[in-house]
Amino acid sequence: MDESFSALRASFSNTGWSRISYTDEGPGDRDAQGVLWARVSQSLDERGELTGTPQWRMINPARQRETMTKLLCQFCRTPARTPEGILFLHSTKDGIPEPSTTVHTTQPPFCREHARMAPKRCSHLADRGHVALLAQSAPLYGVIGTPHAYAADRSIQVMACDGVPVPYGHADLAWLVASQLVRTLRAFTVVNLDDL
């Protein structure tokens, strides 16, 4: 059994609703909206800063959460917001999104320098095709994670994860362990990376 799973228990929120929590929960285990996050190991330097380069095929929940929360480049972790907007790369497996639509993304933004090299390192973008979206607005939407349930025998059961984002404020978040933060891209334009 996974150590983080064995540390899960049922508890009650400040409002009296049941929810999932860790037995030894600390302040960093929940985000600002009160959602519980999966615990993962990370490589840190002597200052406590993340080290190493992203593993493109594997999503580290802590790194994804940090870069999405602070809108940092997912490669170099510098601020990705510019006067022109925030640059995101988006898979085109379902076509190129129309600027009048909204797009939910779990992909952290990029700085201009690393947006150009990302498709060469990320098979998800290379295999499915991609487009660059320069967003003027990218508010937090919710999370993707693993739902759990409190069973009749007082055990915590893992439920099937469908990968569908759960919006902040939804009741299902009380029993979900988040692994990816989701933002909504609004007021975006499709741009050519070479033109930036």
Rank of each mutant, 00 (worst) to 15 (best):
A115E: 01
L181M: 11
P97S: 05
T53F: 08
R81C: 01
F5Y: 14
D153R: 02
S155Y: 03
L71C: 13
T102A: 13
Q180K: 06
A7V: 01
A135C: 06
R9H: 14
F88I: 08
G16A: 01
I156M: 11
P97N: 10
R77E: 14
P27K: 05
T78P: 00
V190N: 15
G95Y: 08
S43K: 14
R9F: 04
A115W: 02
R47N: 14
L89Q: 05
R81Y: 00
S123P: 06
M58Y: 10
F5V: 14
D45I: 09
R121P: 00
R65N: 07
C73G: 05
L181Y: 04
R47V: 00
E66V: 10
A171M: 10
R116P: 00
A174P: 01
L185W: 08
P83I: 06
T67C: 13
G145E: 11
G28K: 10
S123I: 05
N192W: 00
T102C: 10
R57C: 02
R77P: 00
R39P: 04
G26E: 11
P147H: 06
L185S: 06
A115S: 09
P167Y: 09
D127S: 08
A152C: 01
T92W: 01
S41K: 09
R186L: 12
F88E: 08
R121Y: 13
S41Y: 03
D94E: 07
H114Q: 04
M159V: 03
R121T: 03
P109G: 12
P99E: 08
F12V: 09
S123K: 08
K93L: 05
S21V: 00
I144K: 14
P139H: 03
R154F: 12
T15D: 08
L181G: 04
R116M: 08
S4E: 13
R9E: 13
E46Y: 09
R39W: 07
Q33I: 02
A132Q: 02
H148R: 11
T67L: 04
Y150A: 10
V35N: 13
E49R: 14
P167A: 14
F75P: 02
G142W: 13
F5P: 05
E84F: 03
Q157E: 14
F75C: 11
D29V: 01
